[in-house]
Design a protein around this nucleic acid. Sequence first.
DNA 1: CTTCGTTTGCAAGTTTGTTTCGTCTGGAGC
DNA 2: GCTCCAGACGAAACAAACTTGCAAACGAAG
Lengths: 158, 158
Amino acid sequence: MHHPPRLDAFDRKILAILQQDNTTPQRTIGEAVNLSAPAVQRRIKRMTEDGVIRANVAIVDPAAVGQSITLFVEVEVISETAEHIEAAKRAFAATPEIQQCYYVTGEADFILVVTVPVMADYEALTRRLFFGNNNVKRFRTFVAMDRVKVGLGVVVDG
Amino acid sequence: MHHPPRLDAFDRKILAILQQDNTTPQRTIGEAVNLSAPAVQRRIKRMTEDGVIRANVAIVDPAAVGQSITLFVEVEVISETAEHIEAAKRAFAATPEIQQCYYVTGEADFILVVTVPVMADYEALTRRLFFGNNNVKRFRTFVAMDRVKVGLGVVVDG
DNA sequence: CTTCGTTTGCAAGTTTGTTTCGTCTGGAGC
DNA sequence: GCTCCAGACGAAACAAACTTGCAAACGAAG
């Protein structure tokens, strides 16, 4: 994370491609954006160092590994002191079943995305995380029936 | 998606690595799991064909490309007929600002994860998607103050 | 006009991914 | 028990991709 990220049109086009498939050869990317492969490589390297590209990962189908249930949880806490919030963040971040955790404004304080193999696992999780934590005022659960659209891609044309 | 996905301990270890960094050389993976590089390559290929690995993508920092606001939206619809639900799914899936969309049970029907550069863009989005759609009964918005944990990784130890 | 800094393309060098091939193991059928 | 066959493995050869060095083009500042 050295430089303030300033991205030109080339960078944005490259990002758009890598967000869809980061196994695309640099030579192919170069043809798509009208740049040589080394130029593409240097830009990718720079964006990686600058933190624009946070990670390169394989997306695994949850159902294929037995994590067939996706849940949303709105969590409301009692005390919002810095220490309590930080403790909650750490606990959520450290829980592998929690795929995503956001600290939000509104009627809830945290929103979680959870994946588990069977409901019993979620029940166990609620006991451990919520009922076992006396700073949790209440939580509401939504069960996903259909994962209509799932991704972390962001709009890059800017 | 040919075979029914049957994953052994090797496959799961490989998946765990690729979920964190899919640029890891196959030789390195092989050393980590006690397998030769070609064996790793064959397993990755098989899992990709079987749909266990859905995609290989770069994760881009939303803030770096100007999408600094993340929002959650609970949407409640009026009519839940199949046609209305399918129409809604299609509309949400086709909206680039909507990163994730789930059809859920509970007090809401859809949960959306949205990223936009500034609040005005979200306001425009609500006008277009919600106020401009007379099947939307109501919606609730949560603004993310902190992206505590973001990812699509799933527990793979099975 | 010159200089410095940046970025590019090309070409060589290095690393990584892929294919080939021979071997081994486990199971079905004789 | 024996043979045969299918599947999976590792070693090595091979192909493709990535990475680096270097000279040239371009722009901004002096």
